[in-house]
């Protein structure tokens, strides 16, 4: 039986393992996130980051171990809106004309029954989220007409619109222009500081936010490191990661 998470934990991974066919891609990984923490989960390509992310979100079932989100199993949340998820920008490939506002408004479906019409509260939340990512003027544009960085911000707004307590972002700064990276950093810092939102970044490069993190978790199938970024800089390659695999920002910190 899963133990109930203490109120000081928003997410706990208990000894997670997962294998595709015979190959173990996530091996006995355990950690937890406290409210208001700003954490990065990093690792080289093929380190099991994406698989771990999918386990945390409840999109995959672990072979062993379990995940607790706000004390419940992922996918069984009474209020799914407490979890915000920003997928990789590449997953956004609308087949039909879709406005930025329509993308963001979709995020409110985690806060109301799917068959209900949006209320004034929903519409206000959409405008608020568009403002937070500086996309108000582009609300009626088609998402396909936006730059990569603007599309990324639209996806962040779709997660923020539900006012989540935990925000999980998958490779949010990959291939994004400097202006969008700066806006992205500012809005994350604001979320963490003003709203006590817990943020988990899953990335192989951290760019602008590296200096603001509370904790870094380094993954390479197993959990290689879990602690403040300063400690990681001191240990560098002794973590058992080949130098050529190290994320770019990690090299900068050495």
């Amino acid at each position: 039986m899963p133990t109930t998470a203490t109120p000081t934990t928003v997410l706990t991974a208990h000894a997670l393992s997962f294998a595709y066919d015979e190959a173990l891609v996530v091996d006995d990984v355990g950690f937890s996130l406290a409210p208001g923490e700003f954490v990065a989960l990093v690792g080289p390509n093929g380190s099991g980051k994406s698989t771990l992310l999918r386990l945390l979100l409840g999109l995959l079932r672990p072979a062993t171990g379990h995940v607790e989100l706000f004390g419940a199993a992922p996918g069984e949340l009474d209020e799914p809106g407490r979890l915000g998820y920003v997928p990789q920008r590449g997953r956004l490939t609308p087949e039909l004309p879709t406005t930025v506002r329509e993308v963001v408004a979709g995020g409110r479906l985690s806060r109301r029954a799917w068959w209900r019409r949006p209320t004034a509260v929903d519409r206000d939340a959409v405008e608020h989220a568009l403002t937070a990512v500086a996309l108000t003027d582009l609300g009626d544009r088609l998402v396909t007409e936006l730059s990569g960085g603007q599309q990324q911000r639209a996806l962040i707004a779709r997660a923020l619109v539900a006012d989540p307590e935990l925000l999980i972002l998958d490779e949010p700064v990959a291939g994004v222009d400097a202006e969008s990276q700066r806006l992205f950093r500012d809005s994350l810092i604001h979320l963490v500081q003003a709203h006590q939102t817990t943020v988990l970044l899953v990335s192989h490069e951290l760019g602008a936010v590296a200096a603001d993190l509370d904790r870094v978790i380094v993954l390479k199938q197993r959990l290689m490191f879990d602690g403040p970024p300063a400690d990681l800089a001191a240990r560098g390659v002794s973590l058992g990661i080949h130098a050529e695999d190290l994320p770019l920002w990690l090299e900068d910190m050495q």
Binding site: L57, L77, P80, P87, R91, L96, G106, L109, S110, W114
Partner: peptide, 22 residues
């Protein structure tokens, strides 16, 4: 009743699952 949910699933079904949509 369902067009908003269907459009959201059409954009990205994994995000829709995380949002708690059936």
């Amino acid at each position: 009743f369902a067009h908003r949910a269907w459009f959201t699933i059409g954009l990205d079904d994994e995000s829709a699952r995380v949002m708690g949509l059936p």
